[in-house]
């Protein structure tokens, strides 16, 4: 009895000992796979379906084992990139700026054709009586409002920027309640059910969900479109050439730019990828700074 008990304790210590022995070994894996991630900007349960296809495409084109790891938040995507656990990431404007500031030598490779002039839609539940106007409707004041993720460009940064521009006050002082839905699909659902009266959503997600028939135009409508700004992009770490061979970053870029399969592109959703530079995102960096979202 006691004998058995002590023996199981001994076994626990043995296992823990073995584990601690494993850890340093884990760091020195051979022939490491190429790993990428993406910000969870939409329905998180579809992320794997969306990006496993992309992983297969990259593996085929690059001839390197390629894996996608799903993350739960924008910040987690940046952290994984910063810690070198992923080498490539599909970032939003703001998360890309943050990631590149934290990883010297990293650079934007490609953006969607739509990302050069990305737009945020302000949407409202029909009960508010708001309709589309040329400028941000002042009648929004006093309503309930939801952003997307706290770290989103199209769901947080740009809408907050325009709200402050129009009202000269912080969102919490304008609306009766301010929320962060988490992602764009969720913002759509919340405003459509009336849980929030007004929200800000990525136009690409809106257009696709409209096409897929998931939006009831009688219950929710667009009330304002922001001026265009640069958004999503693929960003790669500076050390990939050392790890995967000379010219690897260039090959990744070429692979992204030559992605033509509509099924793949639709999962972003983008019509094509075009080259991008770090400097393309300078306006985003300045805006984020002015809002105090980055130091």
């Amino acid at each position: 009895m006691m004998t058995m008990r002590i023996r199981s304790v001994a076994a626990i210590y043995a296992v823990l000992g073995a584990l601690s022995g494993l850890l340093p070994g884990a760091g020195a894996a051979q022939a490491e796979p190429f790993v990428f991630t993406a910000i969870p900007d939409e329905d998180a349960s579809q992320l794997r379906t969306r990006f496993d296809k992309v992983a297969r495409y990259l593996a085929r084109t690059l001839g390197v084992e390629t894996r996608y790891i799903p993350v739960k938040s924008y910040a987690a995507a940046v952290t994984a990139f910063r810690n070198g656990q992923v080498q490539l990431a599909w970032f939003g404007g703001l998360s890309g700026v943050r990631a590149r500031a934290m990883v010297p030598g990293s650079r934007a490779l490609a953006q969607g054709a739509e990302d050069r002039a990305f737009v945020t839609y302000f949407i409202a539940h029909e009960s508010t009586g708001l309709s589309e106007s040329k400028s941000l409707p002042k009648e929004m004041a006093g309503k309930t409002f939801t952003f997307g993720s706290k770290g989103s460009t199209s769901g947080r940064l740009m809408p907050e920027f325009h709200i402050r521009e129009a009202f000269g006050k912080a969102p919490e002082e304008i609306f009766s309640r301010v929320g962060f839905s988490g992602d764009h699909s969720r913002t759509l659902a919340l405003v459509q059910t009336g849980a929030y009266q007004v929200g800000a959503v990525n136009f690409a997600v809106w257009e696709r969900e409209l096409k897929d028939g998931k939006i009831d135009p009688k219950r929710v409508r667009v009330i304002w479109r922001t001026p265009p700004y640069p958004d999503y992009q693929w960003t790669i770490r500076g050390d990939v050439d050392e790890r995967y061979g000379n010219g690897f970053a260039q090959r990744v870029k070429a692979a992204l730019l030559s992605m033509k399969d509509p099924d793949l592109l639709d999962s972003f959703p983008r019509s094509a990828f075009i080259p991008a530079e770090n400097s393309d995102y300078e306006p985003i960096r300045k805006t984020a700074r002015s809002l105090g979202l980055i130091d």
Partner: peptide, 21 residues
Amino acid sequence: KPLLPVWLVAAAAILPWGLTV
């Protein structure tokens, strides 16, 4: 009780230790 070491070893074995720390 007798299964505890088995579970612990199995738990350690299935976790993805490959990611670098």
